[in-house]
Amino acid sequence: MEATLANEKIEVNEQGYLLDMDQWHEGIARAIAAEEGIELTNRHFEVVNFLRKEQKNGTSLSIRKIGKSGVVDIKEFYELFPEGPLKKASRIAGIAKPASCI
């Protein structure tokens, strides 16, 4: 399906995750974050850019890996993206919904 984000037509799945991560830019991240009730700061973008980099490398993301990344610890990750950090951060980063149980 198509969604209008930052005045652009973007292909997303029914849960609102981008289908093509290359359609992403910061404006789209801000639009999705606003839907999630989050105002993005530089700190958020550091995490989001890390997630995009990992996704490009083909790594399957988990909270544990993010905690070990050196970019953000788990406590701060939950503070930056409250109520479902991995799912919310992935959606804002324009990458697929993570399938991790840990």
């Binding site: 988990s62 909270i63 544990r64 890996k65 905690g67 610890d73 788990i74 406590k75 939950y78 840990i102």
Partner: peptide, 15 residues
């Protein structure tokens, strides 16, 4: 990539 119990407790607590 499943953590040990001690690490898992820390992850859980940090969450």
């Amino acid at each position: 990539d499943i953590p040990t119990v001690s690490e898992f407790l820390e992850i859980y607590k940090a969450s």
